[in-house]
Each structure stands twice: as structure tokens, then as C-alpha cells.
């Protein structure tokens, strides 16, 4: 078991993060803290600049009283959890079938050229990172990408340029 388990629960994270996770735990019956694993990972990832360190996963495990491997399983299964640093703006570009038919290749190529990075990479200034994702359920607006919590649809190279300029 993790050495962190000996650590007091109240020494993990900040009071704000603990409150957020506790809010999620409270949604499930007592003793079912495992159910809050995904939410807790999201909260901790957001607070850590968009990615999870091994230590932060261990802390989530300790906080939820789970073996660390149970958290690693969840955190490596879902593609939304990042295990490497990402840019301030994580550009998640859909290349699944509808977007592909609507020329997502051109969108990807434009991003590659403009930002000088490929999928899985971060710009040197840390402003953008690029990620290839599967269908995000917005086929009506293909090609599309997601940045943060926002969907950008009907993308063209020109539209992309103005979107990128707006993102800090």
C-alpha cells in the first residue's frame, strides 16, 4: 500500500480541492468513495494545470481510501486524463468519421503548420497543446474541436486563426 496512506487526509490537497471532492463523495452512498474517483481526478487535474502526476494520483487514492492501482486504472483508461504536461489551451481535434469526411485533415495540417507541433506536443511557450480525439458528438458541425469546455464547430483555417488569436 502507498506510504501516503499514513499521511493525514487533511494534509492532502488544498481545503478548496478537498471541499470539491467531498461534494462529489457525498453524491454516493457511504463507503462508496470509489464512485467519486473520476470526479476527483478531474478536480485534481484541473488544479494542476491540466495533467496528473503520479503523486497526485497517489493522493487521490489515499484520499478515497483506494489502492493506488485502482486510480491508475481509471486515469489511464479515460483519454481525458493527461499524464504529461499540456498547454494552457488543449486543442482536442476530432478526426473521427464525420469530421474526416469534412476535411479535418486540413484543420490538423493547418494547426501543425501554424503552431509547429504535432499531436501530443506542446508549444514552447506553453500556450497550446494538440490532441487527437474521437467523436465528440457534434457531427452536425464537423469538422470540430474542443478547447476547455467549449466546442468550436464548422472549422476552416481562417476561423481557426481567429480562434487561436483569442485563446490566451
Amino acid at each position: 500500500m502507498s506510504a501516503l496512506e499514513i499521511k493525514n487526509r487533511n494534509e492532502l490537497f488544498t481545503p478548496e480541492i478537498r471541499a470539491e471532492i467531498d461534494h462529489e463523495i457525498a453524491k454516493y452512498p457511504e463507503g462508496e468513495s470509489q464512485s467519486a474517483a473520476m470526479a476527483a481526478l478531474r478536480i485534481v487535474q484541473d488544479a494542476n494545470g491540466g495533467w496528473l502526476t503520479q503523486e497526485s494520483m497517489d493522493e487521490v487514492a489515499a484520499y478515497l481510501d483506494l489502492p493506488p492501482i485502482a486510480i491508475y486504472e481509471v486515469a489511464t483508461f479515460y483519454s481525458m486524463y493527461e499524464h504529461k504536461p499540456v498547454g494552457r489551451n488543449k486543442l482536442c481535434v476530432c478526426t473521427n468519421i464525420s469530421c474526416m469526411i469534412n476535411n479535418s485533415d486540413q484543420i490538423v495540417e493547418h494547426l501543425n503548420n501554424r503552431l509547429g507541433i504535432k499531436f501530443g506536443e506542446v508549444t514552447e511557450d506553453g500556450r497550446y497543446s494538440l490532441k487527437e480525439v474521437e467523436c465528440l458528438g457534434a457531427c452536425g458541425g464537423a469538422p470540430m474541436m474542443q478547447v476547455g469546455r467549449k466546442y468550436y464547430e464548422n472549422l476552416t483555417p481562417e476561423r481557426l486563426d481567429s480562434i487561436l488569436d483569442e485563446l490566451e
Binding site: 489502492p67 493506488p68 492501482i69 485502482a70 491508475y72 486504472e73 489511464t76 483508461f77 479515460y78
Partner: peptide, 20 residues
């Protein structure tokens, strides 16, 4: 009583191991 191994990754990339 010691859950040390698990299935990390998904689909084609799933592996059984200790992860760390």
C-alpha cells in the same frame, strides 16, 4: 488482500501490471 496489480490503459493498449 493487496491490490498491487491492475489493468491500465484501454483496448489495444491495456496492460496488466503494477503501473509504477
Amino acid at each position: 488482500g493487496m491490490r498491487e496489480m491492475g489493468a491500465t490503459g484501454r483496448g489495444e493498449h491495456m496492460t496488466i501490471g503494477t503501473f509504477v
